[in-house]
Design a protein around this nucleic acid. Sequence first.
DNA 1: AAAGACACCTGGGAGC
DNA 2: TGCTCCCAGGTGTCTT
Length: 270
Amino acid sequence: MPELPEVETSRRGILPYVKGQVVGAVVIRKALLRWPIPADLPQRLVNQSILDVTRRGKYLMLHTNKGCLLIHLGMSGHLRILPSGHPFQKHDHVDILFRTGQCLRFTDPRRFGAILWATDPNQHPLLAKLGVEPLSRQFTADYLFQYSRKRTLTIKEFIMDSHIVVGVGNIYTNEALFSAGIHPQRAAGRISLQRYQQLVIAIKVILKKAIQRGGTTLRDFQNSAGKPGYFQQHLQIYGRQGLACLQCKDILREIRLSQRSSVYCPTCQR
DNA sequence: AAAGACACCTGGGAGC
DNA sequence: TGCTCCCAGGTGTCTT
């Protein structure tokens, strides 16, 4: 599920239930996620107050005075707020129980997600090399243009590389390239500054709209508004291979780049 | 330094 | 019904 808008939706969903809460216990039912959950996580977290919940790329960070809990949702992860003692199911791997009796539950069928501890998140190897935030002022056409010179990889792969820009996954890269009229297979180093300007605007607009609509398919949290994401109703190209382009009626095509499905309009995208 | 293949894992759907 | 195969919103790591 989670690209940046879904992670941001998760952050906003849990924030009011988690911020200021004191951890009473941590239950780890399955420690084998992408990396093992550190065995000493409970002793690090218990009695700590959650000062804030922030996001860096697709990582959620729960801050305490002693360090920071990192949560990555992988391909299939999600978080819910539940009353403690709520029955758990097969893929409910971790519960963080608060003194108030509420529980932050991490569920992830594919276990590509991660739960890690960082004493100093800025020094953590997974975070230290991440690229710019797409909704920040640092994400500019000039940045992409300079960074891409002499690069021969495709623009699709370039945008999806988290060392360049974080959070823009397969769905939103497809959408943004369509919106900017750029063929996904075009070499990143052969795109003009002007076209990068269009692409940067497209990425920012699409991500903001997706956040406004609660992401694309993320299930919502039991205790927040109780709504799923609605952005899938606004997808212009992702998943529409073989159907007519919404702009020109040409038939949308699909290719695979880095084992990821890429849909494009052969007329609108060059 | 950069490109490409491969790894991790489960569930759902298509096809036989 | 059941089996096999392929696909899925991610990304670090190893080999060329």
